[in-house]
Design a protein around this nucleic acid. Structure first.
Length: 206
DNA sequence: ACACAGATACTCT
DNA sequence: GAGTATCTGTGTC
């Protein structure tokens, strides 16, 4: 299986990259075992001009530093003191774009995911940005690592994605971002619709 | 099927 | 000190 190359992440259209990441596979080889899942929900954060982005107005701190760094690297931060949220840095160094991975369709190591998540259910393992990092044992100590090879990586495993099955909506949980809160920069695959992040599914239930 | 509150610790003012 | 790109359990319908 081939990891996505650096060039995949290096362009300046983070919204297109967020769309293109749907159907790709996030994989973590850990001493516990291998866990992986197909990416089914993403959000684009567009650097210094985006009021929802941590790098808004050129904000540059210890936390946001990796967003200004190399494309194809991880940006992982702690949210609400509990949840580790996983992003991929995009665009060339000096820009601060990133794509948040919000949900996965579990592929490998679901038994390990169940243990890490503390559930006996086979559903709901990776249907939220904080849940998928717990299921894949992704924490802030993996911040700033390259995703183009190594234990944590994103692969193209050849899953075909019907472009008509990709829905586009506003982003979640960023009400503070004023007019940018309405930008339709969230992408989700409509097929496993029960597996996208939960309270904001925005899809009819049928 | 909602709605709500509480947990939690780090980041930046 | 305030705010946070969230999740869970409990309550109610």
């Amino acid at each position: 299986m081939s990891s996505l190359p650096r060039s995949f992440y290096e362009t300046d259209d983070v919204v297109s990259i967020a769309r293109s990441l749907i159907g790709k596979v996030l994989m973590h080889e850990h001493s516990d075992g291998i866990t992986s899942g197909m990416i089914i929900e993403t959000e684009a954060y567009s650097g210094t001009n985006d009021k929802a982005c941590h790098a808004c107005n050129g904000r540059r701190t210890a936390r946001t530093e990796v967003m200004y760094g190399e494309p194809g690297h991880s940006y992982i931060y702690l949210c609400y003191g509990i949840h580790h949220l996983f992003n991929v840095v995009t665009n060339r160094a000096g820009r601060a774009d990133a794509v948040l991975i919000r949900a996965l369709w579990p592929l490998k190591g679901m038994d390990i995911m169940q243990i890490r998540r503390g559930t006996r259910n086979l559903t709901g393992l990776c249907d939220g940005p904080g849940k998928l990092t717990q299921a894949l044992a992704i924490t802030t100590n993996l911040n700033g690592l390259s995703l183009t090879g190594g234990a944590l990586r994103i692969e193209d495993q050849g899953f075909q994605t019907d472009q008509n099955a990709i829905l586009q909506t506003p982003r979640i949980g960023i009400d503070y971002a004023e007019e940018d809160a309405a930008l339709p920069w969230r992408f989700l695959i409509s097929k496993p619709e029960r597996s996208v992040s939960h309270p904001h599914r925005l899809l009819p239930d049928h």
